[in-house]
Each structure stands twice: as structure tokens, then as C-alpha cells.
Simulated scan of single mutants.
Amino acid sequence: MAVDFEDPKSGFRHWEVVLFINEEVTRNGGGPGFYLTFISRPWKDIEDGLKSIVADAQVPCTIKRACAWSALALGVRVATRQREKQTRRVQQLNGQVKEHEAATWTLATDLQRLRDERDEMISELRSARDNLKQVLQERNMLQRRLVEFKLSEQQLLAESQDADYPGTPPWPSFVEKPTEAVDPGLQNGQYAVSPKKAQMASIKGLPRSLP
């Protein structure tokens, strides 16, 4: 028997087909030798092996037909193996596609989050800029008020000095005011008495009999 009925990797789904192939191999004088020799090899090796038998004139035609049936069975097996391999490859690719989609979704979410953070930061910077502009304006206004207050204070001080010395400009701060002359009597240790005080003293010394 060339093909095993219970082999799940044979590629055949119907046992009637397997039975017919085995009968043809046996009827033509063949056996499981060719099938078992190339059971795990690629189709290229199977075809090369069949060619060497078909091209050999010393090999009977019945054996050539038996090997051809075995090669047909091996071709189905190879096709099944390639289909399973492609199926696994497709599953792997689908898994990679899903992973890429998940990674893309994650990146898109992160990108949107970064955009939102950027917009929020821009809004905060604009608000800070407006607040700074307002603070600078208030500072300039306070500086102007301070300058006006100092000028007003100096003007009031100047008017006060003019009231103390009418008609006479105030003494500059860098010029010393002239000191009053010292009475010669003070130099001798006597107290100086003004004329007005002396007159009052003389009046007080008069008797009270005056009408």
C-alpha cells in the first residue's frame, strides 16, 4: 500500500480515492517504495525521481505507471503541506496586522493626547502673555502716578518755602544761611534783652497810683 488511509497529511479526503490509487500501484507491480522515499521531499525532488524512472528504458511500463500514481499521491501531499504552510503564514500575517492596527491606534491616541496638551499649553501661554501685558500696563500707570506725585510734592514744598519768605527766593540747600550777629553783651556772659522787653519792664516798674 502506497498511501496510508489514516494519514491526515496525505491530502486526500475520500478513502475511495486512496483505495483506487493503491490498487493501481499494486496492479502495475509497484509498492510503497517510491512513495516512502519521497514522502518528506519537495515536489522538485519528486519530479526528478519520477523523470529518472520514466527515462530509463530498462524499467517496465507498468512500474513507470505505478511510480506515476505514487508521484500523483505525493503531489497531493506536497500541495496540502504548502497549503497548511500558507495558512499558518496567513494567520501570522493577520496577527501582525492586528498588532500593527493596535499599535497604530495607540499611536493615534497618544498623538491626539499630545495635540490636546499642546493646545492647552498654547492657551495657557496666551493667557499668561495677556496677564503679563496687563501687569506691565498697571506698572507703567503706577510709575506715572509716582512721578506725578513726586512732582506735586516738590511743587507743594516750593510753595511752602515761598510763603515763609515772601518775595525772597528760598535759600539753596547747598548755601548756609547767615547767622545773626552776637550781642557784645552775650560775649561777656550777659543776657541780651530786646528793646520791646525793656520797655515792658519799665512800665511794670511804675507805681499803680496812675488814674
Rank of each mutant, 00 (worst) to 15 (best):
Q154H: 07
S173Y: 12
L142I: 01
E138C: 02
P166C: 02
K133P: 01
L142Y: 04
P169I: 05
L111G: 13
Q161C: 04
S173L: 11
Q134I: 00
E117H: 04
Q154A: 09
P166K: 01
L125V: 03
S160I: 07
D119P: 01
K133V: 06
D116A: 07
R115H: 11
R118K: 14
N140G: 03
R113H: 03
E148Q: 02
Y165R: 13
N131V: 00
S123G: 03
L132K: 03
E124A: 13
L142S: 07
P166N: 04
S127W: 04
E124M: 11
Q112Y: 03
W171N: 08
L111I: 08
T168M: 12
L125F: 05
E148C: 01
P172Y: 06
Q155W: 08
E159H: 09
S152Q: 15
D110S: 15
P170N: 02
N140M: 05
G167R: 07
L151A: 12
E148G: 00
E138T: 03
N140E: 10
R144D: 14
Q134C: 00
S152I: 07
M121S: 15
R126Q: 12
E120P: 00
Q155F: 06
V147N: 11
A158R: 10
D116G: 02
W171R: 13
E124C: 07
F149R: 15
L142T: 05
G167E: 04
Q143K: 08
L142D: 09
A108Q: 15
K150W: 12
D110Q: 15
Q137M: 07
A128E: 09
S123E: 12
R115K: 14
R115D: 13
E148P: 02
D116R: 09
P170G: 04
Q112R: 14
V135F: 12
L136N: 14
Y165E: 08
D164Q: 14
S123W: 08
A158S: 10
D162S: 03
Q143Y: 03
S123F: 05
L151Q: 13
L132N: 00
A158Q: 09
P169E: 13
A158Y: 08
V147F: 07
T109R: 11
R139T: 06
R129K: 10
S173A: 15
L151G: 02
P169R: 15
E159Y: 07
Q161T: 05
E159P: 04
N131E: 13
R113C: 01
D110R: 15
V147T: 12
E148N: 04
A128M: 10
E153Y: 03
G167D: 05
L136T: 07
A158D: 05
D162M: 03
Q155D: 10
A158V: 03
R118T: 01
T168V: 14
R126S: 11
L136W: 10
M121C: 11
S127G: 06
P169G: 08
T109Q: 14
L114W: 01
P166Q: 02
K150M: 11
G167A: 04
Q134D: 02
E159A: 09
P166Y: 00
P166W: 00
